[in-house]
Structures are given as structure tokens and as C-alpha cells.
Amino acid sequence: MLITNLDKRKQYYQALLAKDQGYIGIFYAGVKTTSVFCIATCRAKKPKYENVEFFSTFKEALDAGYRPCKICKPTENSNAAPSEVIKAIALITQNPKTKISDMILKEHQISPETIRRWFKKNYGITFQTYQRMYRINNAFQELKIGKNVINTAYDTGYESLSGFGYTYKKIMKNAPSQNTNNEIILVNRLTTPLGPMFICATNQGICLLEFVDRRMLETEFKQLQTQLNTKIIFGENSHIVQAKNEIDEYFQGRRKYFAVKLHTPGTDFQQTVWDSLKQIPYGKLTTYKEQAENINNPHAIRAVASANGFNRIAIIIPCHRVIGSNGELMGYGGGLERKRWLIEHEKNIQIKTKSILSTQIRLIQNKVFYYQKYD
């Protein structure tokens, strides 16, 4: 929300002047004269008090019409994991069979309190729960290739078979000896210039990519688990790693097409609509009406719009490229300001690409003219 309390506004303004790291993520400062918003530690020239307003979340700043500052990158740096969290996660991924205790964290100069607060705020679970999910995922993969339950339990760091079985069943909803042929859904987190996103994948490919504040996100998780008859646990596979790299390249303007594999359970009609979305060229816009016509169902405009709304894979399946027939932005789960940002981002990259291409053509033409003249 917009901060209107006078004392708090003054407090936040002083924190902005002091570049106080303790206020990162606490407020977002919208600068009226430049239409950008910043986090507390921004290095840009500070605005006058009367030219700044404060918001509780970056989404509220976006909704108010402000753009992310290119210097402090507020949607990235306020939500990216701090160095201590990155080190703690690395300990888990590098030692998936070891329980990372508070003592081990302290040995690596990591504050257990900082880790607990960050995981609870950003994932909604404790660090130990996150860690258990990684260990159980590792156990699941080993059971899947035929390793017996007893060896898996002890190799995964559990001191008793009963303790392993209890934890495994609590997370996977089945005993370790059951249903290892079923696949699971892994969920991870990434940061982008528009804020953090959750990314999910099965062995077949990416099945969800959504902003963490997307409406109905919990419902999407439940529907996905029901459709695939499996559970979601924290982890990472090759599809997630590839998608993270490709999304990063997209935001840097270095990627226009995605190669990562997708897994998109849905009705036949939804699959047809989602396939049509993937055919919309980078930097181009279409309407729901045109999309309906493209799938040879011109009267299904509302049904097409509804199927677009059920798309769980933002950006990669580019529903942000569909607008109303009147040119208005409509229906985007991540928020209309994000939709506007994505459209402008692709438009600017296209203009930049054309400019570079035109320059290259002129250089070639000049060289040809030179050689023709002096040959």
C-alpha cells in the first residue's frame, strides 16, 4: 500500500538518504520526477522529500505506474537471496545426504536466525523443511533406480528406518516402497527484474512459471498436483536449470525464443490455445479474436481468453502478447503493469535489433561501394 503515515514517510526518507541496508525490501521509493522506483540502498541521486512516495511492495509501485530503477534494480535486489542464504542452499545441494544443523551453519559464518527468517518469509516454510524436501527428493531418485529402502535411508543421513519412512510418507504421501515409478514435481525460485517467480518441473519439462504474488497461485499448485497425481517438493532438475538460464537471457534481451522442454497438462482445447500462444512472434501483439480465428474457432473468443488464463507458464508461453480488440491490456495473472513492461521490453529489444542490423547493412554497403570505386 501507499505509505501515508507522516512519521513513517520521514523515517523511510532518512533511510533512503543513508542507503540503509536494513530497509531493503521494507519500502519502495517512487520518484515522481523520473517515474522510477528504488530500494533503500540505491546509488542514484536522491530526490527531494516532496518528490518521493513510498510503497510496501514493488508490485504496488508498478501498479502506480513506476518503472524499476536501472541502477538499484529493486525487483531483483530486494528479493534475491542474500549471500548467507546462497551459502546455506549451496551446503544443501553439495551435501544432499547431510543434515545441515545450526552448528554447521555457524561453522560457515552463517546466522541460523537469518536463514530461518528468510525461508519463512520467501518460501513460507522453515529451512529444515526445505532441507528435508531436498533429502527426500534425493532418496526418491535413488529408490527409483532400484536402490533398497534400508540403504537409501541410512545413506540419506537418517539414523533409523522408521524416521526415514515417517518423513518420506509425510512429504510424498506414500511409503518409500510404493509408487517410485510416479514422477514428482520439483519447485524452485528465481528472481527477475519484475520480481521473484516460482518454477516447477517434472522429468518431462517445465510445468509452471509464475510470479510469487500471482493470484490463485496456491490453487494452481493444487490443480497441478491433482492433474499429475503427484506431490510438489522443493528441488531442482536440468529443466529448471535450463529455464533459469533462458529466462535470464530473455530479460537481458539476448533471447527471443525458448528451447526448454515443457509439460503442460490440460484439455485438448487448452493445449490448442497454448500452442497458438507459442506461435505469436517475439515483439508482436495479437487479440483474443485473432487468436480464436487462428485456431479455426472464431466464435470461441471468451473460451480462448479463459484458456489463456489457465496458462501456468508465464513468459515462455507468451500470453502477455494478447490484448483486447480495442488495444487495451487485459487479463494477465501477473498484473497489467507487468504485462505492459514485458510488451515494452520486447518492443525496445526489437527496435535495438533493427538499429544494429541497419548499421551493419550500411557498413557492408559502404565497403562494397569502396571496393567498387577503387577496384
Rank of each mutant, 00 (worst) to 15 (best):
G65A: 05
T41Y: 06
K32T: 04
K87F: 00
K97G: 12
I39P: 00
A81P: 02
Q94T: 12
A64L: 05
D63Q: 13
F37C: 02
T33D: 02
I71F: 12
I39C: 12
G30L: 11
T41Q: 12
C69T: 08
V36F: 12
P96M: 06
E50C: 02
T41A: 09
K87N: 10
I92E: 00
G65N: 03
K45M: 06
A64H: 08
K46T: 11
S83E: 09
R67L: 15
P82R: 11
T34W: 06
V85K: 07
F58C: 01
A88W: 00
C72L: 11
C38W: 00
A44R: 14
G65D: 02
N77V: 12
E60D: 14
P96F: 13
N79T: 13
T75R: 11
T33L: 05
E53N: 04
N77I: 14
C38F: 01
I39T: 10
K32W: 03
V36W: 03
A64N: 06
I86T: 05
I39W: 02
I89N: 04
E76K: 12
C72V: 06
K46V: 08
K48P: 00
A40T: 13
P96K: 11
A90H: 12
A80W: 07
K73N: 10
P47F: 06
G30R: 08
Y66K: 06
S56A: 13
A88N: 00
S35K: 15
Y66C: 02
T93C: 05
I39L: 15
I71L: 15
F37K: 09
T98P: 01
A81G: 03
E84T: 14
K87Y: 00
E60R: 11
A90Y: 10
E50S: 08
C42H: 04
A40Q: 07
I86Q: 07
F54Y: 14
T41G: 02
N95Q: 06
F55Y: 15
T75F: 04
V52S: 04
C69W: 01
I92N: 08
K59I: 08
V52W: 07
N77W: 10
R67W: 09
E76T: 14
L91N: 01
L62S: 02
I89M: 15
A44N: 12
T93W: 09
K70Y: 06
A90M: 05
E84Q: 15
G65F: 05
E53T: 13
A44M: 11
A90T: 02
K87G: 00
I92L: 11
P82I: 12
A64S: 14
K46R: 06
V31G: 03
A88T: 08
A64I: 02
T34F: 10
P68E: 04
A81R: 10
T57L: 08
